[in-house]
Amino acid sequence: MSLIGKEVQPFKASAYRNGEFIDVTEESLKGQWSIFCFYPADFTFVCPTELEDLQNQYAALKELGVEVYSVSTDTHFTHKAWHDHSEAIGKIEYIMIGDPSQKISRNFDVLDEEEGLADRGTFIIDPDGVIQTVEINAGGIGRDASTLVNKVKAAQYVRNNPGEVCPAKWQEGSATLKPSLDLVGKI
């Protein structure tokens, strides 16, 4: 069942950010755009490359009013240890949520029940807490965080311009479409 258009379900979790532990709930997402980036586990192989890549896009995402949350079924304590011992993860400034209860991963339908680990899932969430995009990759396939900037811009454009849609490879400032009977079969 698709999560597109669904509100993020209630949760409360401990997280690590910039040398401190914080609490995060679904209410933390309200009033801003958010990205949830689920990954299988700390101290692994593909995961640090993805999270470092996401950090490299963090400033551009912040300029768009987006907060980033990485999530795994590890604890917030494990996130801190990984942050302290990995050169790649040590760069991270965004929030690292611990989900040892697996509730958040299950709510976002990315939990591998047999392994007890999250799949590689990326979600863009609007300021109302509603999921606008979903991307889920197999465990061995890393994601490219640079694509998130354009996806967020498109989601923000569509939200702010009802009745318009963004075509494939849409870039900010380029033409959009206004679906209508006259447009059918003309693209």
Score class of each variant (00 low, 15 high):
Met1Asn: 10
Ser2Phe: 14
Ile4Glu: 10
Glu7Trp: 05
Gln9Met: 09
Pro10Asp: 15
Pro10Tyr: 08
Lys12His: 09
Lys12Met: 04
Ala13Glu: 02
Ala13Val: 06
Ala13Leu: 06
Arg17Leu: 06
Asn18Leu: 13
Asn18Gly: 03
Gly19Arg: 12
Glu20Ala: 12
Phe21Val: 15
Ile22His: 13
Ile22Trp: 10
Val24Phe: 04
Thr25Phe: 09
Leu29Gln: 06
Leu29Phe: 09
Leu29His: 07
Lys30Gln: 14
Lys30Gly: 15
Trp33Ile: 05
Ser34Val: 14
Ser34Phe: 09
Pro40Asp: 00
Ala41Cys: 08
Ala41Lys: 10
Phe43Lys: 00
Phe43Val: 00
Phe43Tyr: 01
Phe43Cys: 00
Phe45Ile: 13
Phe45Tyr: 12
Val46Thr: 10
Cys47Lys: 14
Cys47Arg: 13
Glu50Gln: 09
Asp53Pro: 04
Asp53Trp: 01
Asp53His: 03
Gln55Asn: 04
Gln57Ser: 13
Tyr58Ser: 08
Ala59Gly: 14
Ala60Tyr: 08
Leu61Phe: 10
Lys62Cys: 11
Gly65Ser: 00
Glu67Thr: 00
Glu67Phe: 04
Val68Lys: 05
Ser70Glu: 11
Val71Ile: 12
Ser72Cys: 03
Ser72Met: 03
Ser72Asn: 04
Asp74Met: 02
Asp74Asn: 06
His76Asp: 14
Phe77Gln: 05
Thr78Met: 11
His79Cys: 09
Lys80Val: 11
Ala81Gly: 06
Trp82Pro: 07
His83Val: 01
Asp84Cys: 12
Ser86Ile: 01
Glu87Leu: 02
Ile89Phe: 15
Ile92Ala: 13
Ile92Val: 08
Tyr94Phe: 06
Tyr94Ser: 00
Ile95Cys: 15
Ile95Phe: 07
Ile95Gly: 08
Met96Arg: 08
Ile97Thr: 14
Asp99Tyr: 02
Pro100His: 15
Ser101Asp: 12
Gln102Tyr: 04
Ile104Gln: 12
Ser105Trp: 11
Arg106Ser: 05
Arg106Gly: 03
Asn107Thr: 05
Asn107Lys: 01
Asp109Gly: 03
Leu111Met: 06
Glu115Trp: 14
Gly116Lys: 14
Ala118Cys: 03
Ala118Asp: 04
Asp119Tyr: 13
Phe123Met: 01
Phe123Gln: 01
Ile124Tyr: 10
Ile124Glu: 12
Ile124Gly: 14
Asp126Gly: 05
Pro127Ile: 07
Thr133Ser: 05
Thr133Val: 02
Val134Phe: 01
Glu135Met: 10
Ile136Asp: 06
Asn137Asp: 06
Asn137Lys: 04
Ala138Glu: 13
Gly140His: 15
Ile141Pro: 12
Ile141Gly: 09
Ile141Cys: 05
Arg143Cys: 04
Ala145Phe: 08
Val149Tyr: 00
Lys151Asn: 11
Lys151Ala: 13
Val152Lys: 01
Ala155Cys: 09
Tyr157His: 03
Val158Leu: 15
Val158Gln: 15
Arg159Leu: 14
Asn160Gly: 03
Asn160Ala: 05
Glu164Met: 10
Glu164Leu: 03
Val165Arg: 00
Val165Lys: 02
Ala168Asp: 02
Trp170Glu: 08
Trp170Arg: 01
Gly173Ile: 02
Gly173Gln: 04
Ala175Trp: 08
Ala175Gln: 07
Leu177Arg: 03
Pro179Glu: 01
Ser180Ala: 10
Leu181Lys: 13
Lys186Arg: 11
Lys186Leu: 06
Lys186Ala: 11
Ile187Cys: 02
Ile187Asp: 00
